[in-house]
Simulated scan of single mutants.
Amino acid sequence: MPRTRTAPRTASSRVTEARRLHIPIALRWGDLDAFNHVNNTSMLKLLEEARVRAFWKAAPGEDAPETAVLESGIDQGVLTLIARQEIEYFAPVPYQRRPLEVQMWFGKIGGSSVEVCYEVFNDPASAERILYARSTAVVVLVDAVSGRPTRVNDEMREIWGRYVGDPLVYAHRR
Rank of each mutant, 00 (worst) to 15 (best):
E71S: 14
P24V: 01
L46W: 03
E62R: 11
G30I: 03
A50T: 08
V114A: 14
Y170K: 06
G77K: 00
P92T: 08
S72P: 12
D143Q: 02
R134G: 06
A83F: 03
R173T: 15
H172P: 05
V142H: 02
H37N: 00
L100H: 04
I23E: 04
G110I: 07
L79K: 01
I109W: 02
T16H: 07
G30D: 11
E128K: 13
P24Q: 01
V78M: 08
I159C: 03
R151W: 08
A68D: 00
E62N: 11
P167Q: 03
N40V: 04
S112I: 11
Y170A: 12
Y132G: 01
S42T: 07
G77T: 01
D63C: 10
L100F: 03
Q76V: 04
N40W: 05
A133R: 05
S42K: 10
R151S: 12
S13H: 15
R98K: 15
R19W: 01
G111P: 14
A58F: 06
V93I: 15
A91T: 08
S42Y: 09
A26V: 05
L141D: 06
F35M: 12
P2M: 00
G147C: 03
L32W: 05
I82H: 09
R19C: 06
K57R: 14
G110D: 03
R157W: 01
E17P: 09
E49R: 15
T4G: 14
R20S: 02
E66W: 02
Y118A: 00
N153A: 02
T41A: 12
D143P: 02
G73Y: 03
G110Q: 04
D63E: 13
E119L: 03
E86A: 11
H22D: 12
S13R: 12
I87G: 03
L21G: 04
E48S: 12
I130Y: 10
V138M: 10
L168K: 00
R3T: 10
T4K: 14
E71P: 07
Y163V: 07
N40T: 03
R51T: 09
A59T: 10
N36W: 10
G61T: 01
P94A: 04
L70Y: 12
P124L: 02
R129M: 10
E49Q: 15
G111W: 14
S135D: 09
P149L: 09
E101W: 11
R129S: 13
L27A: 07
S112C: 13
R162Q: 11
G61I: 00
T150S: 12
P94I: 04
P99I: 01
